[in-house]
Structure formats: structure tokens, C-alpha cells
Nucleic acid binder design. Structure first.
Lengths: 259, 259
DNA sequence: AACCAACGGTTCAAATAATGAACCAACAAC
DNA sequence: GTTGTTGGTTCATTATTTGAACCGTTGGTT
């Protein structure tokens, strides 16, 4: 691994539970030498990717990432288009909708929208890390991912999030096969208890999945009627998103049949 | 300059006019060796900071920057809070409002809001690079920036954007002094002809300016009445933003006097 | 006060990674 | 065919990165 990759990998230590990290913590988390980490962080800081704050001198992400994100959006308007689509989607389903993309071996939620329709709703955070085997989004992605990627994910130890988390690789593969038939994956309480999520994959310009669009509802509200509405709306929304960011569905993705 | 800084500096070659860049162009623009650039870009690509697309294999910014930006927002909600404030600001003034921050030696617009009130309006793009001497935002920042920074900016050759661009360092310093009295800077047609912009600095936790909030209107609409309304609203909005991101105005910033 | 542990930051010889001129293969224009 | 692009690759030389040990502070314990 080159020096640049090492430096950038330090950035991925930040997450929602760790928005600020001290030098020693970074050293421990990364397994690198303290002097190395210090020098790398200093370079990242000089370029505005992180900044140091407070009297404990902890590092946090810097303002430069905002500029890059604005430019990325100008190139591929994934976020703004998604927000548009999510707004419609949560309105037409009355439930929480969110969009996630895969970066490396991680599935990250990028943006979400709530429906004001119900008092209870599934709550979300942006930049949250989801599991592949426990969420509708993860399964939707895997159902059209490369074989090797699926193998890699399913051969690792699979975390148990709730009492209903499915961790049997064979049963998960069966779920993927079924998702390929419908073009929609679902997870019933696999990540958070009482949450039933549906998801459809989003595809990039190379006809490979880049992430997923999902609708999450409390299990108590999941009637057959709502289920079919969600599937219908979700498929249309995912297709729309794929097209509006310049992507293409693979030829074997079920398009026309009603879900 | 370390290897990491070199790699990250390649990212700053991207801007609105250059969303996608080929290997040879990057080589030319950066002045580095082609093999070096190739290796650095490969590492950036492996980490998702850039991606290669099309049959010309040009590079563009990658999805990883979105995740980092979402986390930065979770740490310091600059964007979301700004958008809130900009919406109010353009509503109360009836003109285009925008927010820019300084990153290195660059002033970048991060987000903006239009008022639906008038048919004609000043149009903006996010992630646009503004000049310090030609815009209200730039002057607002400089008026509270460190002496050395002001010297550095004003000692460089100053671009002429319009026939009304002020490029005399002495007159610009006078404008900064006046901005310090009001807490508001302005530029009349200095960046784009026919645009009159007002701006107020935004401060960080260390009482140093980090950027500016601005309102831009067509010169034809700029009556004394609108001017005083803009100044009043702008100062309140900038103060609000500063406080809501955990910043502090320096003691010498004029707070209470009406503008 | 004395002690200890943990913190951020620094040093420098040794080890490792970055560098760049030259090179390919592929494509396009002439 | 020639010439000039392009993206990508090679490898001996060179310069940078590395990490154990160090320093000065801070904050808690005894």
C-alpha cells in the first residue's frame, strides 16, 4: 500500500460514532506508527482534509471535502437527483426512504427523506454504514453484484444485528436469487427490530450496481397492500435514478412485469 | 511537499470548467512526471476519490468525497445551516444569496439560494471560484483576515474581470478599512458587470474569518432602501451562521450599530 | 509533592517507497 | 508510412517514509 493510500485510509476511520479522533486513537485504530500517523495527518491538515480543534487537539474532517463534494455533484448529480426522487418516493409510500452507495466494501447511506404522514417512522442518519446481509439495500446490491464480491462478503463472519438477522450464507443466496426475480430485495427486521425494508439496486454506466434505493417501514404497518405499492414505486424510482445519473440497468434486470 | 500533498493537490485541479481530466492533461497542469501522476491517480482511484470513465479514460471526482462530506456535515453542519439561512436571506431581500468559504488561497462558493420574487436575478453555481479583490465576499473575508494573508493576495497580479474591477491595492485597502467600520463589504460590478454584491464575514471558533455570506443584486435594482435592508439582514444572517456553527466574532467586529 | 500514565509532538539512522527518462501499444490525422 | 497524440509500464537511481526512542505537558492517584 502506497503512502497516499495509507493517508486516505486514515480518513475512513471517521464515522458517525467517531467524528473526532485524537492522534493516539488514530494510531491505535490504524495500527500504524505514531510518527507516521502524525506526519500523514499533518499533510491531510495542510490540504484542508482534516482540521485540529479544541485543546485536546483532536482531528476532524475539514472543509475541503465540501468543495470536492460540490464538484462531484456538478459532475454526477447523484445527491441532488436522489433527494428529488426520495422526496417523491416517501410521499407516495408514506414511509421513510433512503439511498445508499457502495464504497469499497462498505455500504453507506448518503441521504434520506421522511414522510410526514405517520407519527411513527423509521429514523435514519446520513453517512451511516449498513450491513450487506442485514438490510434490503445490501441484498439489493448483492443481487446484481459480481460473484466474487458476493463470495467475499458472505464468506466473512456475518454480524447478528437482531434476533431476526439472517446469517446463513445459503439462505442469503436464496434471498438474492429471489431478489433477482422481482428486482426488489427485502429484509424483515434484519438490521433493526421491527423494521421492514424493501430496496432496489441502482446501476452505473457500466450496468453494474453502485448502490440501492430503499423504503423502510415499521413492521406493524406492512400490509400486503402497502407492500405492493412500495414495490411498484420503488422500482420506478430506482429506474428513474439510474437513468438520471447516466446509468443503465443490465439486460437481465426485470423491468416491465408488475411486482 | 510530501507525496500525500502532491496527490491531494491533483484533486484541486478539478473545477467547474474542468470536471473531467485526462492523464496527459493532469500531467501538464500539475507539472509532474507522467508516471508519478499515473501512480498517484491510481491510488486516489483505489480509494474512491476519483474514478475513470468513458473510452478516453478521463478522471473525474469519485463517490468517496460524498461520504466524507456527509460526515463533515455531521460534525459541523455548515452546509445545512447555511442553506437554512440563505433561504431566509434571499426571501427577506428578494435577491440571490450565497455562501463561500476560503480553502487555502481560494474563495469557493459552496451553496446559494434564489429568490423567486424577480424575473431577473443574479445566477450562481456552487463550487465556483471567486476572486478576493473583485467580490463583496472576498473583501468581507479580507477585511478580517490576517495581515500576511491580505499582503499575499494584494501583492499578486489582480485579475481584471470587468471594466469596474478595482485592482489598485491601495484603494482596495481603503475599501477593507471601510468594510471594518460597517462589518459589511461591497463590490459594484467588480466581478460581473451589472452585479452589486454585499457581503459579511463568517467567523470560526478561533474568531478568524472562514468565509462570507453575500447578497448579489442587479445594479439597476439597488436603491438606497434595498441597500439598507440588505445590510441589516445580511449582518444578522452572518452573525446567526457564525454562532450556529460554533464560531465567534472578534471583539472588534461592529455588532450593534445599525448599518 | 511526588509519582505515573497518557497525551501530542519530535528526532534521525535505516529501510523503503517514490521518481522520471525511456519505452509500449493503440489510435488519429495527414 | 510517418508523425504525434493518447493511456499505461519499466527499472535503476534517488529521495522520502518509517519507527524506536525521546521530550515536554497534562491530569489523575497516592
Amino acid at each position: 500500500m502506497g503512502t497516499v493510500s495509507k493517508a486516505l485510509s486514515l480518513l475512513s476511520l471517521f464515522n458517525h460514532g467517531r467524528l473526532e479522533i485524537g492522534l493516539s486513537d488514530i494510531t491505535r485504530l490504524s495500527g500504524m506508527n505514531k510518527a507516521t500517523v502524525y506526519r500523514l495527518m499533518s499533510e491531510l491538515q495542510a490540504q484542508g482534509f482534516v482540521e485540529q480543534i479544541g485543546n485536546d487537539r483532536a482531528y476532524r474532517l475539514g472543509p475541503e471535502v465540501l468543495r470536492l463534494a460540490a464538484l462531484r455533484e456538478a459532475t454526477v448529480p447523484l445527491l441532488s437527483v436522489s433527494q428529488d426522487i426520495l422526496r417523491q418516493l416517501c410521499e407516495s409510500t408514506g414511509e421513510t426512504a433512503h439511498m445508499s452507495i457502495v464504497q469499497g466494501r462498505q455500504l453507506n447511506t448518503l441521504t434520506h427523506a421522511y414522510s410526514p404522514q405517520h407519527g411513527t417512522r423509521v429514523t435514519m442518519e446520513d453517512a451511516e454504514i449498513l450491513s450487506f446481509h442485514g438490510t434490503g439495500s445490501g441484498l439489493a446490491f448483492l443481487s446484481y453484484a459480481k460473484e466474487e464480491f458476493v463470495d467475499e462478503i458472505l464468506s466473512q463472519p456475518l454480524a447478528v444485528h437482531t434476533s431476526q438477522t439472517q446469517t446463513d450464507p445459503q439462505k442469503l443466496r436464496a434471498a438474492l436469487a429471489q431478489a433477482r426475480v422481482l428486482g426488489i430485495a427485502e429484509s424483515i427486521g434484519g438490521f433493526e427490530a421491527d423494521v421492514h425494508s424493501h430496496a432496489a439496486p441502482i446501476f452505473g454506466p457500466d450496468q453494474r450496481p453502485i448502490g440501492a434505493l430503499a423504503v423502510a417501514a415499521p413492521m406493524s404497518r406492512m400490509t400486503a397492500q402497502l407492500k405492493s405499492r412500495i414495490r411498484r414505486e420503488l422500482k420506478a424510482a430506482a429506474l428513474d435514478l439510474t437513468q438520471r445519473i447516466g446509468g443503465f440497468c443490465p439486460p437481465d434486470y426485470p423491468q416491465d412485469q408488475a411486482a
